[in-house]
Computed example of a mutant assay.
Amino acid sequence: MALIDPFNRKIEYLRVSVTDKCNYRCGYCMPEQGAHPEGRHTEYLDFDELSRIIKAFVELGVTKVRITGGEPLVRKGLSDFVSSISPLDGLKEIALSTNGHFLDKHAVALKEAGVTRANISIDSLKPELFNKITRGGDLKKVLAGVDAALEAGLNPIKFNMVVMKGTNDGEIERMVDYGLEKGVEVRFIETMPIGEAGISLMDQHYPMDAIMKRIKAHVGTDLIPSTGKSHDGPSKNFIIKGTDTRIGVISAVSQHFCESCNRVRLTARGVLALCLGQEDSVDLRTPIREGISDEGLKQMIVDAMLKKPERHFFNENVHNIEFRQMVSLGG
């Protein structure tokens, strides 16, 4: 058995949300009141259930797992969970997506457990604006997390900046310079109409062409298209000549990249989401808790791939994804 979708794309990358809770409330990701505030703890897959599903995916050919949230570091025992899956034969990479707030405390343990790289969300380098965008975030804590991650060897580090017109688009150049200072990759991400929160901010959508125009004006001829394979697939990548800093732009809305999609997402509540921008999904929690065999679970996953759509339709079918929340899907 192998994970091949109807469009002959090989699925090798699983994003695993371990929680939809977060200590931040970024406007494009989560409603101000949080996600599923009435949710019960038992609705979440426990770490043994998550490990079992990941093992099935790895045996079916998945080589990369990214741990996401919400904010994954608000869930206790994350390093031990990573240690439980890192020995899986065939799993080549465990990555982490985080807002960085707790990273200074956990970077060393995560590295020792098997996390090889981290993406850190930073939407502003201005403390007051950062606090406003995140509805309470502490930029000082995040920058301390960046330094701790680099010191621990969680490398390469990537900074993720969601660019919002009229909010933080004036910091594109400053973020490039911060990436140069730290020697890390900076990725600029278009806002996406995922859930009520994301849809409400689409009037601040800032397209890839406008982002690249700013970056090229700032860097000039030193910006060179990168021909190397990106670790995360969808971004269009460039390297700043004479440095270790790469620049990426994720243009999910203005220039979609669905033809090369190699990923699916597992939510903390056991829903296998087959596309970030479509409602296609499969419940894995119920069969897991009803005693499905390992072979039955793998067959169920293989069959689920047949439901993976060819592409999203962010501009045409926003209503299809309004009920979802980015914080629950793990980006």
Rank of each mutant, 00 (worst) to 15 (best):
G331K: 06
P156M: 09
I250Q: 01
G330I: 07
F159M: 06
V302H: 01
I247W: 03
P207W: 04
L297Y: 10
H41P: 01
E12K: 14
K64H: 05
I189R: 03
G270V: 08
E71S: 02
E128W: 02
C26Y: 07
L88W: 10
V62P: 05
D147F: 00
E173W: 00
F313P: 00
S121E: 04
A152Y: 02
A148C: 05
R265M: 08
N119W: 09
A35T: 13
I239Q: 09
V108D: 14
E38H: 14
Q299G: 13
K55W: 07
K132T: 11
E279Q: 14
T191N: 11
E12W: 03
D280N: 14
D104G: 05
V62S: 05
E171N: 08
L154Y: 07
E295R: 12
V219R: 12
F130D: 00
G198I: 04
S226A: 15
E310H: 13
H205F: 06
E32Q: 15
G179F: 09
P207V: 03
R66C: 01
K76Q: 14
N262T: 13
E190V: 11
L274F: 11
Y24M: 13
G195E: 02
K298D: 07
A118W: 06
V271M: 15
I247Q: 03
G220R: 12
D177I: 11
V184D: 08
T286C: 02
D222E: 15
G77V: 02
I157P: 00
R75A: 08
